[in-house]
Amino acid sequence: MPEPLLRVRGLRTHFALDDTVYRAVDGVDLDIARGEAVGLVGESGSGKTVTAMSILQLIPDPPGRIVDGSIELDGTDLVHASDATLREARGGRVACVFQDPQTTLNPVLRIGPQITEMIRRHQDLGRAAARERARELLDAVHIPHAARRLDEYPHELSGGMRQRVVIAMALANDPELLIADEPTTALDVTVQAEIIDLLRELRERTGMALLFITHDFGVVAELCDRVVVMYAGRVVEQARVDTVFDAPSHPYTRRLIDCMPSLGQGRRDLATIPGVPPALDRLPAGCAFAERCDVVEEACRSGVIPLEQVAAGHLARCLKPGARP
């Protein structure tokens, strides 16, 4: 296997609040190959966003801190990198698109300068050239009247348009990896589909790798090559997308997929997973999902359950992979 673009090993990101330590990410391994699209899936609080934000150290510190592990971008360690190295990676080789376009753009600055400052930070371009490049970027994400938009403020654009601006900005320096943290969650359903289409189109055109964070398996199926499922700060399953849909190994993954609504199934109540994830400051021994699992047995509640290979390229953290009730 060729050297991956991004290699995360044993990442632990903890949050210390009022003497309590929340183990938001607790030993995550993650590889992303060049040009590969990886979906990072899990419920709210499973640690998927914290994992992704740890890559560029965008965790608010304090209270968050990477306490252990390594994050290598093309062989360069980012965890212990100097500020300068980190800033080169941020917005250069790795760019981010965040969840809520209402709040991710600076409300008091015009669109143009927000994009050009990203360009000029990483490329040696003059004012006019950067502005021209910004206009091209807005064209590339299909924003009509791009030249005019550059002089508008974020509040003058719709949510979908704003997210396109954020994506255009992220593409400014031809990143090798795009981290998209639930980029469609805050948008209308029809707009969501447009943004997904746009991301797929851009990926085909630029060949950049994608780390796509979502709780929606449907989007993963449309956009990703591989999926990594997280629960309570750990990876519980990873495999190719088709494998996960055909034969999920971890009960949590199976039940997440059951939660997806689909056409042609007639009327049925949408499945839910009863219970809530465990508190991150009091993780139980054994499997963190045991309390909510429908195939749990005594052995699941003690020791450390390892992430083991169930088939080639398919890992699961379960003592009874593939078991059904």
């Binding site: 969840q99 709040t103 991710t104 753009l105 930070r121």
Partner: peptide
């Protein structure tokens, strides 16, 4: 400083 756009600005690689 808690706002998302400050994180966006950091993610662009700008200095503190």
């Amino acid at each position: 400083l808690r706002q998302d756009y400050v994180r966006t600005a950091t993610s662009k690689g700008l200095t503190r």
